[in-house]
Amino acid sequence: MNIFDKMMRLDRRWIFLFLIIVCVVTYIIPFKVPIHVVPEVRSIYDFIDTLEPGKIVLIAIDYDPNNLAELQPMTFAIVEHCWRRKIKIIFTALSQNGPGMAEQAIRDISDSMKVDKTYNGKFYKGREIKNGIDYTFLGYKPYYGLVILGMGQDFRLPFPTDYYGTPLDSIPMMKGVLNYDQTAGVIDISGGSITDAWINYGQGRFNFPLALGLTGVMTAQYYPYLGSGQIFGIMGGLLGAAEYEKLADNPGRAMGGMRIQLYAHMVIILFIVMGNVGFFMNKRKKKLREKGI
């Protein structure tokens, strides 16, 4: 077996080992990598940043623990941005394990909001985030397509009470809020097919502004909706979250993860190149052998 054969038949465990070493080393050593913001992420940031305080945004937490690493940083960055700007949020969680993700995010971001902070040179005084005033968490209901359609008529149809059992009519923030018409828009942070329902049943039927925060695996297939104007923004994977964190001047796990991602990608590219070099050199050798050279 020559070197090119070895390059093509490298035991996958060596690749895993090399990748893990690179990831651990880049994780432990802190340094920064440049992050370039794309227009589709900036449009989501601008949408939140230009809303009047007191406006309502619906944020759909439609992911399970398996997407936590990619999507929770997005939720943190967007929700904190909204609350710092005193924008109210209606949360839904139409994925079965979503309520746990939403509750964890609400709890952690509420804690973070108690501290004074300065973002992009602007000072924000810490404050207590109150359920029913700053946000309403509607929770989970099965059959997301029907729930999305129902909310378009009246939030009270699929959700007579919020997640904690309080009737929507007794929640101060929900007074006069009937359906999507009273919200500025919807941001769906999703790790599955619920996104299709938001586009088809939600935006398609009720025509509200919709933006998506998606796992990397899903991102490419939703770009056509951006081109057609059905969605106004898209955040893809941890990179999308890092771009939002950069815009919001709120560095978190996503920006920290970018240095690992950069070097991990370089390792993968290296192995792809190695495999291809091995393949083409072997092919060349075979041709030369056939010609008797």
Partner: peptide, 29 residues
């Protein structure tokens, strides 16, 4: 492009686990 995004996605999951193991569990970070 789709495959590239998938690789990025899988690496993000690994970063999440590293974050948990080295940060939450071992408290190194």
């Amino acid at each position: 492009a789709s495959f590239g995004y998938t690789v990025m996605s899988r690496m993000s999951l690994m970063i999440g686990r590293l974050d948990f193991l080295f940060g939450t569990w071992l408290g190194m970070i």
